[in-house]
């Protein structure tokens, strides 16, 4: 794993103004290595989603910076940021946000289209266990299946970083573990750096790197020496 693939330095962010001003990030510092499975853990309002959005280049910090492979996001213009997201990132959200009138395969192709080095769509479908559903529309799938498609859409790009915002937040226990296993697979199989936001403490055991946030600051920044597999997790 290369050092300092992703570097977060003195990151601050606040919302509102005057008395309503709320500081969400208050000088955050940490680094993530390439290929690392990093979990951002924290309760609601700890700033984890905001942090993820800033790393993803869809939100901007008030202070500090994010650098990927030495390139600072703050120095990028809108077009460069779009290209950054296009070339380097894959996104998985709590809500799957699939395109309703595209079928499973086409929804995954939406991700493949953006990439210069996409994975084979059929292979991704097989990996995600969606082969038999590939011609179904999102409204014909269960929540777990939809999240698989959403992961497929992100992974097929063969991104450097897979950003996951509470990917299991809307799923049941069993399906959640399956989804986590898939993300784990991607991390292992394709060497994709994973940054996952969650409030589920149990997930930290499958991560290489656990960053606990509270009130906008990093409370703990730990590296797991012994990891569990997703299927071994219990909560």
């Amino acid at each position: 794993m290369s050092e300092n693939f992703l570097q977060i330095k003195d990151l601050t962010k606040s919302f509102g103004s005057g008395q309503a001003r709320q500081e969400v990030l208050r000088g955050m510092d940490f680094t993530v290595k390439k290929g690392e499975f990093c979990v951002l853990l924290g309760p609601s309002g700890s700033g984890k989603s905001t942090l993820l959005n800033i790393i993803g280049g869809i939100d901007t910090p008030d202070g500090g910076y994010v650098s990927i492979n030495g390139d600072k996001l703050e120095e990028m213009n809108e077009r460069q940021l779009t290209l950054y997201r296009r070339k380097h990132l894959g996104y998985v959200f709590q809500m799957y946000n699939l395109i309703p009138n595209l079928n499973v395969k086409e929804n995954i192709e939406v991700g493949a289209y953006l990439s210069d080095k996409p994975l084979d769509v059929e292979e991704v479908l097989t990996t995600l266990g969606l082969s038999e559903h590939k011609y179904k529309y999102p409204n014909q799938l269960s929540g777990g299946q939809q999240q698989r498609v959403s992961i497929g859409r992100a992974v097929v790009k063969n991104p450097d970083i897979l950003m996951c915002d509470e990917p299991t937040g809307a799923l049941d226990y069993k399906t959640s573990k399956e989804i986590l296993a898939l993300i784990e697979d991607c991390n292992k199989k394709f060497g994709t750096t994973v940054i996952m936001v969650t409030h589920n403490e149990a997930i930290k055991y499958m991560a290489d790197h656990v960053i606990k946030l509270r009130d906008g600051v990093v409370r703990h920044n730990d590296l797991n020496t012994e990891k569990l597999t997703a299927l071994e997790l219990e909560w």
Binding site: I58, R79, T82, R85, G90, R153
Partner: peptide, 10 residues
């Protein structure tokens, strides 16, 4: 939002 976050340009 998802497509834009994934890298689709405006």
């Amino acid at each position: 939002g998802t497509l834009r976050a994934s890298g689709y340009s405006r």
